[in-house]
Nucleic acid binder design. Structure first.
Lengths: 216, 216
DNA sequence: CGGTGCCTTGAATTTATTCAATGGTTGTGG
DNA sequence: CCACAACCATTGAATAAATTCAAGGCACCG
């Protein structure tokens, strides 16, 4: 079903290299990893030993219910940190949405710099991730289907994403909807002239204000 | 509407005292604050300057949509940390569910101990809060009304809470449902003999396994 | 005793889902 | 090059789930 298995070994071809994190505390070992579309980066419910950062492509965090229902916790794009879940075990697994390259850091980088470091570091990423999760709670708990889709497009737009790397099923599982509902709402937003989505994938916001108003 | 206003000043009667946090880094100034039921502890969208811990009572974190829709992010009980949202601004405000006493710490305690400290510290609380938020994402995005209510009761039970301090409206806003649906589901769980709820408030789990199975 | 606030229950309605069919694109093999 | 299969997205109609609307009950308080 997923194009893993045989090609996975080749895809995981790992090139390790040392790298200075810039915190003055010596060098940190960083692994660079490549993944094919839909390949698993780390599974759900496994001890979180490393932190990751997206270099290229896109990553989703995924959680499955025993009967197959799926929730996507977040999408991560180049520059974004992920895998900071819990120190005990990841609540969500991580998978490549498209072919992707990520860097893996030892967990120790979290406590390297303390509060003094630059704002782009992983310490702030944890707080950013919590903020994103809390925003998403509001969306899932209280917004309508149309508001969810509008908010999703606004968020992508704000993050500079102009090409949807994920399938409708991913969007649906992120927004707590079905693919059909997502599709209907996208069609509706297009008919209303707020956005334009070519070939199901390329995103163009035509009326940004109206869209963000709709996103509630 | 809320019993704030006049009595608020009295209620906020603050007793400050010095306190050793146990991290060996000297003493930290801790304020002890009391709040009446439904009183605001800190508002939504305000810089997060302090960390809080519940001493007694219960606290909810709240976020409002402009049209009045409300989402509760979490409930906090004695021993729980809260207010760790973002360093920029709180995504959620905090309010007392019942009369409550909390301790307020300076934000600096977050970086005091690093990774070496005991597991009960605020550093782990941030990660715990993220884990809770992620669990809640799954609940809001993919669970049915009955599963949500069952999961809520299971969670309270696991945290040792046997008395519901919050109103039905709070439960509804936490679970992304309406009060009527919450009430119906509670009635249904009682008719099924899984739980017993006396006087709308006291919680007794009769079939823990069955309930947690229902919680999915 | 009457009033208020909160909870519960039933019926009607709405929203999103499920079921079903169709269209478009891509890649493969004849 | 075209036919065909596989996969994904879209659309319509029927269904199910939760909400909204409405009424009534219970406890608490002045």
């Amino acid at each position: 079903m997923l194009n893993q298995s045989d090609t996975a070994i080749d895809a995981r071809a790992v090139s390790r290299n040392s790298n200075d994190l810039g915190q003055g505390d010596g060098r940190v070992r960083v692994a660079r990893l490549s993944f094919l579309q839909d390949q698993e980066i780390f599974p759900q419910e496994v001890p979180a030993t490393r932190l990751y950062r997206v270099l290229s492509g896109a990553v989703r965090t995924v959680r499955l219910l025993c009967d197959g229902r799926r929730q996507i916790g977040a999408f991560h794009f180049p520059g974004d940190w992920f895998g900071l879940s819990a120190d005990g075990a990841h609540r969500f697994g991580a998978e490549a949405v498209s072919d992707a390259v990520v860097e893996a850091y030892p967990r120790s980088v979290l406590t390297l710099g303390g509060a003094a470091g630059p704002c782009a570091g992983p310490e702030n990423a944890i707080v950013l991730q919590l903020a994103r999760a809390e925003d998403h709670l509001l969306l899932l708990g209280r917004k309508t289907a149309e508001e969810r889709v509008a908010a999703f497009l606004c968020d992508l737009n704000a993050r500079g994403i102009r090409e949807l790397p994920m399938r409708r099923q991913d969007i649906a599982d992120y927004l707590g909807l079905t693919i059909e509902t997502v599709s209907r709402m996208l069609s509706h937003l297009q008919r209303s002239g707020l956005v334009e989505i070519a070939h199901s994938r390329s995103l163009r916001i035509l009326k940004e204000d109206a869209l963000s108003t709709l996103a509630a």
